[in-house]
């Protein structure tokens, strides 16, 4: 084998294997997220993702990540704060629970401080009223409404939204 041939084979092998290395996966760590057509909150919504959904990272731009599923049927941009490198198990077995507790590799959805614990907390602290917390959560401002608000107030929106 000549030196030239060896180098060519090495480069080819690296080129073949590298895409696999780049196939990083991330999980949705918020209750529900919107995928957008562009890396910005002003991008149109092209899909909705749910807590625990796991995707392949296809591209990054600043703090925005383009994710897609295995069949590329779902693809779009989402801010990195909506994603985690941890696997999020919606239904965890005992082994997974132990791994989650020891390694931090996994996050167990609905475990730890959860709705059951909140219900127990409420029953023990009847003087703590959650009704306005529930009402607060129902006040939802969409990115489009926020953008219109800024425009109406002549506030200059920086390009790309979040950093």
């Amino acid at each position: 084998m000549t030196r030239h041939t060896a180098i060519v084979i090495f480069v080819l092998c690296c080129a073949l294997v590298s895409p696999a290395m780049a196939a990083k996966k991330m999980s949705v760590q918020i209750r529900e997220g919107k995928l957008r057509s562009a890396p910005s909150f002003v991008g149109s919504v092209v899909g909705t993702v749910k807590y625990g959904d796991r995707f392949t990272v296809a591209d990054t731009q600043g703090d925005w990540i383009r994710i897609e599923d295995e069949n590329s049927k779902i693809a779009g941009w989402i801010h990195k704060s909506a994603l985690s490198t941890k696997r999020i198990k919606l239904k965890a077995g005992k082994d997974n629970a132990e791994v989650a507790a020891s390694s931090g590799e996994l996050a167990l959805a609905g475990k730890g401080f959860n709705s059951d614990v909140e219900a127990e907390f409420k029953s023990k602290n009847k003087d703590v009223d959650f009704s306005w917390i529930d009402k607060m959560e129902k006040i939802v401002v969409t990115p489009a409404e926020a953008a219109a608000f800024l425009k109406q107030g002549e506030v200059a929106v920086s390009k790309g939204g979040a950093k």
């Binding site: 801010h79 401002v141 926020a146 608000f149």
Partner: peptide, 16 residues
Amino acid sequence: LLGQALAMASDMPETF
């Protein structure tokens, strides 16, 4: 409206 416009420009615009 004002708060959401600001939160969108934070480093953590998405929370659970």
